[in-house]
Design a protein around this nucleic acid. Structure first.
Lengths: 126, 126
DNA sequence: GAACGACATGCGTATCTTTGCATCTCAAAT
DNA sequence: ATTTGAGATGCAAAGATACGCATGTCGTTC
């Protein structure tokens, strides 16, 4: 025991979510989509990417489609048939988007840390 | 016309959401809760606050309750009976929380603006 | 040209949220 | 003591999401 215990239980955590949208508000690229795209890049297959993301193929496919419709450009090059039945790989634009998204996220992480410290100071003491 | 029109439609917007949670992940104070509390402060009534927020009283009440359970302190002073049937007003702690949340949000907005510009530059050309 | 297996997609089902009652509770004002 | 109207809650209905299944498409490989 000691200084911990109750204090820990009461600790308030700060969370955030970052996503991109079109002006109409429709179609989004969220954290999940980002990770899904990263997996596609790694695996070369939407199906396997979805499996690793623990998400249904149906949803994964729908998410990518939505994102592409919103951006008005393709994120993946799809191939049907052939060995393995087909595959998906990222387009150059998708790769660039991922890089930019990642940098943005990193920046978010950094700036949230200091903002959070200030926040906690304000709500803690009387 | 000119430089706008199509370019605008394609504009990718950055969205983010900040919220507080307990360590278990349960109970949250989101943007919505923040605005709901602001309305309570303004109106002195949960019912009217919910109406203005365009949210059911049922949900509003549940959200506040959840938040209070998570924080382990009251956010509102509730009164039943009397003229008007009752009312709700914010506690001092709630006021402080709102201030801190607002400051957090503002600080975050500022520090993110730059990152967003970079992001847009990265994905726009080439 | 038959087989293979992922891409593609519709649609009914399951799951999670929010809403919409219905019902109580309570204390100030009459 | 009765009235009043928002706070407090349970619960079933309604909506929104996501999942699973079924079924079709396609192009390389054998």
């Amino acid at each position: 025991m000691g200084k911990r215990g109750k204090a820990d239980r009461r600790t308030v955590l700060l969370n955030y979510k970052l996503w991109l949208s079109s002006m109409s508000g429709e179609g989004i690229i969220s954290e999940d989509t980002y990770h899904l795209l990263m997996k596609i890049k790694e695996k070369g297959s939407l199906k396997r990417a979805a499996e690793e993301q623990n998400m249904s193929y149906r949803k994964a496919w729908g998410d990518i489609k939505k994102a592409e419709e919103m951006l008005e450009y393709e994120l993946t090059e799809k191939t049907r048939g052939g060995i393995g039945g087909g595959r998906s790989k990222l387009t150059g634009k998708a790769e660039k988007l991922l890089e930019a998204y990642h940098a943005l996220h990193k920046k978010f992480d950094e700036s949230i840390e200091e903002a959070y410290q200030e926040f906690r100071t304000k709500i803690s003491n009387k």
